[in-house]
Design a protein around this nucleic acid. Structure first.
Length: 191
DNA sequence: GACCAGATTGTCT
DNA sequence: GACAATCTGGTCA
């Protein structure tokens, strides 16, 4: 396993959303290490994308999106859940990739404990689920994926096909083809 | 399996 | 004051 350095994250956001598929999200905590393979992502852009939190400029909430590439953006949604994003592109642009689903790889017993579920498919098959399973909290909002306890790495793996579709759970910009997932993978959030 | 309502709170208008 | 990049558990088949 090799951990990506800062330069990896500087590409265009759509390109990053595809490149992140098949890589590993790793979180080291006092309770143990949990890791999963990224199988589903969505891109959120600064231009012509009304669904993006940064579409109307920087606010207190979305400030990390305007930070340097490789920053974690964690926010609370619907009063009780959290979503995790990888900030991409250049500092000041305001774009990010939402991680929507993981295939559990390491620390599965810990994930089961955190989630209160035993079925592997119920552990990380959704943005709020994977945040819960890996123990990601708002403390990590704005932290670096290059230096912190939360990081992204890769190892040699099988080839796979990428499927492009429309994003989920948004009201504006819902017709844009900015969702990507690994074809045939059983751990994506939705068919 | 498909469809639907409820939970719950920070953030922006 | 309204809404949000969601999940869960219920009902009905």
């Amino acid at each position: 396993m090799r951990i990506y350095s800062q330069s990896f994250y500087r590409g265009s956001t759509v390109e990053m959303a595809k490149k992140l598929l098949g890589t590993y999200l790793i979180h080291e905590t006092p309770e143990g290490t949990t890791a999963g393979k990224i199988v589903e992502t969505e891109a959120y852009l600064s231009c012509n994308d009304p669904a993006c939190h940064a579409a109307r400029g920087m606010t207190k909430r979305n400030a990390p999106m305007f930070g340097p590439a490789g920053t974690a953006y964690v926010y609370k949604i619907y009063g009780m859940y959290h979503c995790f994003n990888v900030v991409t592109n250049q500092e000041g642009v305001g774009e990010a990739v939402l991680i929507r689903a993981l295939e559990p790889i390491e620390g599965i017993p810990l994930m089961q404990e955190r989630r209160g579920k035993n079925e592997p498919k119920d552990l990380c098959s959704g943005p709020a689920k994977l945040v819960d399973a890996l123990g990601i909290t708002v403390d990590l909002n704005g932290s670096s994926l290059v230096h912190g306890p939360l990081k992204i790495g890769y190892r040699k793996g099988d080839d796979f096909d990428i499927v492009t579709t429309t994003r989920i759970g948004i009201s504006e910009g819902a017709d844009l083809p900015l969702r990507f997932y690994i074809a045939g993978n059983k751990f994506i959030s939705k068919k």
